[in-house]
Computed example of a mutant assay.
Amino acid sequence: MYKKNKLFHFLLLLFPFFINAQVSTVAGDYKIIDIAYNENNDYTRNLILLHEMYNGSLIGMNNAVGTLTAYRGTSASYNRINIVEINSLSAYSSTSATLRSADNNGNWALKTCIYNGKRYLAVDVPYAAAYHDRGFKFAGWTTSTGENMKSVRYEVSGQPVNTNILSEIQNYVPDMNETHLVNNFLVMGNNVGIGTMNPDEKLTVKGKIHTQEVRVDMTGALVPDYVFENDYKLKTLPEVEEFIKENKHLPEIPSAKEIEKNGLMLAEMNMALLKKMEEMTLYMIEQNKKIENLEKKIETILTK
């Protein structure tokens, strides 16, 4: 009897490792899937296989259009919520996919991988030491010629696992467009990043910006028209020359090293350059007066 009970408890411990996802079909291929999280525990990185994808041979309809959620949280455990809207399709000889997510910890990412000899489109679950103890759930239209909405771990405590069935995990670059035809597109948040996952300002762009015009509000910035006031103390040209010889840049203009380190503040730099232009204009006016005086003296000498 003791041996039977011991065997029973042993089988109970093993049982979760063989649980398959529970699927409720709503209509056609629209499903609600409770994805088994048996492949999860703390310090685990895992993929969710969305569907098989084209890998050189023509393939039937494979898609995932819907919402995938991952939760953690109890009265005694740290809370996590990671939600991703998936739009993906692989059929015939091509694959297209994109993601849109909302998270309080980490970011989802599209991946491709080889699982049991087939290539799959997958999502990399946002990582944290504490795993999603509420598991994963998908609601949407999905079908696959292979595995469909299956969680597979690939690393535990920094060590690779499941390498005998899972390999070639690579990034997939999203290749679908998202268009918003609206009157105003408002983002009420802290920072927005384009081409970066770590924006450090209201808008951070990693790359080039192409636009027809840029308008900069000068709130708090002092436009240097005070240069033209009678009491403005303009440096002499010898003083400017001495400063340039010593510092290798103009007075009140940051050096190349400072710009390389801190970046270039557009409004501040434009005002600094405007000030130099205004000062230069004063120098030119002063020089022109001297030239006119010299011309008059030369003319006086020549007419004698």
Score class of each variant (00 low, 15 high):
Ile86Pro: 10
Asn82Ala: 13
Gly66Lys: 12
Val65Thr: 15
Thr69Asn: 10
Thr67Asp: 12
Ser96Met: 11
Thr74Glu: 05
Gly60Ile: 07
Leu68Arg: 01
Glu52Phe: 11
Ala70Arg: 00
Ile59Tyr: 00
Ile81His: 05
Ile86Gln: 06
Ser88Trp: 02
Ala97Ile: 09
Gly60Gln: 14
Asn62Trp: 11
Ser93Asn: 14
Leu68Ile: 03
Tyr78Gly: 04
Ala91Thr: 12
Gly73Asp: 00
Val84Glu: 08
Ser57Gly: 13
Thr74Phe: 03
Arg80Val: 03
Ser57Tyr: 14
Arg80Gly: 02
Met53Arg: 15
Ile83Tyr: 03
Asn82His: 01
Asn62Val: 14
Val65Asn: 15
Ser57Gln: 15
Ala76Lys: 07
Thr67Trp: 08
Ile59Glu: 02
Thr69Gly: 08
Met53Tyr: 09
Tyr78His: 04
Gly73Val: 00
Ser93Val: 03
Ser94Ile: 05
Ser75Thr: 04
Asn55Ile: 04
Ala91Asn: 07
Ala76Tyr: 11
Asn87Ser: 11
Val65Pro: 14
Ser93Ala: 09
Glu85Ala: 08
Arg80Leu: 04
Val65Ile: 15
Tyr54Leu: 10
Tyr54Trp: 13
Ala91Tyr: 09
Ile59Val: 06
Ser77Cys: 02
Met53Trp: 11
Leu89Gln: 12
Leu89His: 14
Thr98Ile: 08
Ser96Arg: 14
Asn82Val: 01
Asn82Cys: 10
Glu85Phe: 05
Ala97Cys: 08
Arg72Pro: 00
Tyr78Lys: 02
Asn87Trp: 03
Ser93Lys: 05
Arg80Pro: 05
Gly60Asn: 14
Tyr78Thr: 09
Thr98Asn: 11
Thr74Trp: 02
Arg72Lys: 03
Ser94Tyr: 11
Leu58Met: 12
Asn87Glu: 10
Tyr71Asp: 08
Ser77Phe: 06
Asn55Asp: 14
Thr67Cys: 06
Asn82Tyr: 00
Ser93Pro: 00
Ile83Trp: 01
Ser96His: 13
Ser93Leu: 02
Tyr71Thr: 03
Asn79Asp: 10
Leu58Ala: 15
Ile59Pro: 00
Leu58Ile: 13
Ser90Gln: 06
Ile83Asp: 09
Ser90Lys: 07
Thr69Trp: 05
Ile83Ser: 06
Ile83Arg: 05
Val84Phe: 13
Gly66Tyr: 08
Glu85His: 12
Gly60Tyr: 09
Arg72Ser: 06
Gly56Leu: 01
Ile59Asp: 01
Leu68Gln: 02
Tyr71Gln: 01
